[in-house]
Every structure is written in structure tokens, then in C-alpha cells.
Design a protein around this nucleic acid. Structure first.
Lengths: 129, 129
DNA sequence: GCCTGCATGCTACAGATGTAGTAGTAACTG
DNA sequence: CAGTTACTACTACATCTGTAGCATGCAGGC
């Protein structure tokens, strides 16, 4: 009852920045800019997004000299889990099983994926409601 | 190259309306309003959302008497697939396997889910790339 | 000491989203 | 026929998102 409860929701652009931050956590805006180079974003855009993430509590900011240093506060695991939950709610009636069924039906599973799914089935301990 | 290519992206509110539409497809705005009763939305809100969906091509509208009748154009399967793809891109580096791994780690399967998934795995023919 | 460069804190602004309200009109109801 | 309903087309408007620009200040080089 502690973790993914108050996870902030991230927009697409914010996900891009968070991925960069997670890539190496105490980092500067300049670092992030480099990591998201292909986005073509301006430095100030990265800055704005980082600020919004700070506002949301997803990253922490502190000063080192006159430079802001950012550090992830939201854990990648939690963000992912939250994103999955959100998808589950809006598109799969909240049912994890419905999602799996959909995946198995529509996604092309590689042999590796199939094996992984199988393992998921075999390993997961029986549910005790 | 026909199906989920040009699938429009749905917002959360739009998902809610689409779910109602899929529930019984040629239907009126009033029908939708009833189906989403718990949302507490005003009739005009539903109307606006339906209009936006029409604009996006997700539903078709035609007149019967002086009443608009809406019909899903976007298939539920395609919408779901698109939503999954989108999640994959932003949170799992586009890797289906990464999503599975995450699911295996964090989500719980009910016995029913397990059975269903197992059946799908057994049934689905081996992939040939 | 002054210029150049990089950092910072604001401000901006269009388009998307959530959530309606209003005005005009067609239809049912006594 | 007049009032009450119900439907439609438009308009509204605060936020959120994507994507920056600007004014300013400190720090190092010449």
C-alpha cells in the first residue's frame, strides 16, 4: 500500500525525458538533451519538461554550483506498472487476463516470447484470493 | 497493410465512449449516455465526445429521422492493439518481450487467466518468420 | 575588466482534452 | 394550438501538452 499508489501520470514527452533520466540518474539538463538528441528538441524544451517532472514529483532537482542536477524519484518499475494499469483500465476492463488474451491473439510471438509466457504460467504461484 | 495502420488515438474520455458504443453498435447519444451513467457526464458532453470520435473516423454518424445514430467504425481489436503498441513504444522500448517480463514480475494471474492463456499458447501455431 | 557561453527563471502560445452551456427547432401531449 | 420535451448545431472555457523564446546573470578567457 505504499508504492505505485500515488504514481504520477506521465505524458509521452515526459516518458521520453524520464527514460533519459533513468539512463543515468543524477544528471544535468544538458545530459538529458544529449540522450534525447534524436527528438530534435531545443534545450529549453528539455528544461520545461524536466521542470514539469519536478512539479509532479517524478524527479528531484538540486543545485550544484549554478547548475541544476536532476535525479529520478519515480522508479521505472512503478512508472511502467502505472502505465500498464492505466491501459488495463481504459482498454481491457481492468482485466489482466483480457490483456493477455489480446496479446496472445494479436501479437506475433517469437519463440522466445512464447517460452517466456509459458514460464510466466509455470512459475507464478497459484493465486490465493 | 489495411487494418491497424491508421488507427486513431483515443483519449481516456473517448475510450469510455467507445466502450459504450461497442457495447451495442448502432446506437444513439442517449443510449451512450445511459451506458456511461456512472461517469456523471452531461448529455452534451457525450455528444461532444461522439462528435470528436466522428471527426477522428472512429465512429460513423447518420440520421434516422431527426436523431443521429452512431455506429462503431474503429474495431475494438484495432483500438486495443493500437493502445498496446503505444504503451510498448513509450514504456517498454518497443519490446514486446520487455512488456511480458514486466508483467510476469509485477502482475498476478488468476486461475482463470492462467487457463485461458495456456489454451492460447497451446493452440497458436508456431510462428514462422 | 569586458566578451562569450552556458545556465537559470519566466513567459508564450497553439492545439488537444475534459466538460459543458445555449439557441434554435422538431415532435409529442393535452 | 401552446407548452413541454428532446434533439441538433455551435460556442465556451479552463487545463494540459508540446515546443519553445527571452531576459539575465555568473564564470572563464584574453
Amino acid at each position: 500500500m505504499v508504492d505505485a499508489a500515488e504514481t504520477p501520470t506521465l505524458t509521452d514527452a515526459e516518458w521520453t525525458v524520464m527514460r533519459a533520466v533513468w539512463q543515468g540518474s543524477p544528471c544535468t539538463a544538458r545530459d538529458v538533451l544529449e540522450r534525447v538528441a534524436d527528438s530534435g528538441w531545443a534545450y529549453t524544451t528539455v528544461r520545461t519538461l524536466l521542470q514539469r517532472l519536478v512539479d509532479k514529483g517524478a524527479v528531484a532537482m538540486r543545485l550544484r554550483g549554478n547548475t541544476s542536477v536532476y535525479e529520478a524519484r519515480l522508479r521505472e518499475q512503478d512508472a511502467k506498472q502505472s502505465a500498464v494499469r492505466s491501459l488495463l483500465q481504459k482498454a481491457f476492463d481492468g482485466s489482466f487476463g483480457a490483456l493477455l488474451t489480446h496479446l496472445a491473439r494479436t501479437e506475433r510471438l517469437t519463440a522466445r516470447d512464447r517460452a517466456r509466457l509459458q514460464r510466466l504460467l509455470d512459475e507464478q504461484p497459484e493465486e490465493r484470493s
